[in-house]
Design a protein around this nucleic acid. Structure first.
Lengths: 141, 141
DNA sequence: TCTCAGATGCGTCGCATTCGCAAAAAAGGT
DNA sequence: ACCTTTTTTGCGAATGCGACGCATCTGAGA
């Protein structure tokens, strides 16, 4: 993991600095979809002097390089995850805010088809399904 | 149309005020997906004294009531459309920012299936396909 | 070790949106 | 129409997220 951080920086011509190492470490250790403030919390737990601005700059850099993906899940602020090797979309539990990943070849295929029918090629896409548990204690609207 | 605005206000217990009437008029007359500033432009073309805050308050109110839908299409600001009677999703042309609506029963069905498999019921969902025009050797551009 | 482009921290700025408050205006009863 | 009550409005200030400018610091190659 240390090694891959070193390699990534080398590959993209980025300096392997202290803050950057820690931020990347935190990113790669996170399996959820933290926002920048949460990342900053995790980072400053390790090294308290790292500024929020640096976290912003780092996630932007890594996103440009394709290392991270950014999502927005309705709540206005951006959340990040390391780019998965297989594309997936998200189920968002509206009661807890937790995110579940899923894949559907079929939906992907249909999207392609729709875009093509309209004379377009897909650049990217975003499918978010906001859900609530199926239990009997159904909530109000 | 005047009538339906009156009815809507009555139905939701909202006062039918001057600004509100004009803002709703503009909303119902818009077939695109304007953002709040654009709405304010259209509204103040009719009645220049209406403030931006009132437009914000009105769209929020109407969204809570289910009269409007809000979208975010990546660019940071919210855009609105009157709730369509038939649900549709969006193709966003990344080169022009223009939005095309589409429907796919099939995708809807697959989403239901996925949610159910994970033990959830769908509250809402959002599918945005970011596209660019297909280049072709000849024919229209 | 020296050098210097790249990186950082801090403070500030910008944009979209929300809030607080006093004044204005709508619905309801008389 | 007039008063009363409650909602709405306009204004300006405040928020929140994110980006930026700049002086300072630092990693890594010579």
């Amino acid at each position: 993991m240390e090694q891959s951080i070193t390699d990534l920086c080398k590959e993209f011509g980025l300096r392997l600095t202290g803050p950057r190492r820690i931020i990347m470490q935190v990113l790669f250790d996170s399996s959820d979809h933290p926002d920048v403030v949460e990342l900053h919390r995790r980072v400053t737990a390790i090294e308290p002097t790292i500024s929020l601005a640096t976290v912003y700059r780092t996630v932007n850099l890594l996103r440009e390089k394709g290392v991270l993906e950014r999502h927005t899940f309705g709540d206005g602020r951006a959340r990040y995850e390391t780019t998965p090797r297989e594309h997936h979309d998200h189920l968002i539990n509206v009661e807890t805010g937790s995110v579940i990943e899923f894949q559907s070849e079929e939906i992907e295929r249909l999207q392609e088809e729709i875009a093509r029918k309209h004379g377009f090629a897909i650049v990217s896409h975003k499918l978010e399904i906001y859900v609530r548990p199926l239990k009997r204690g159904r909530g109000r609207t």
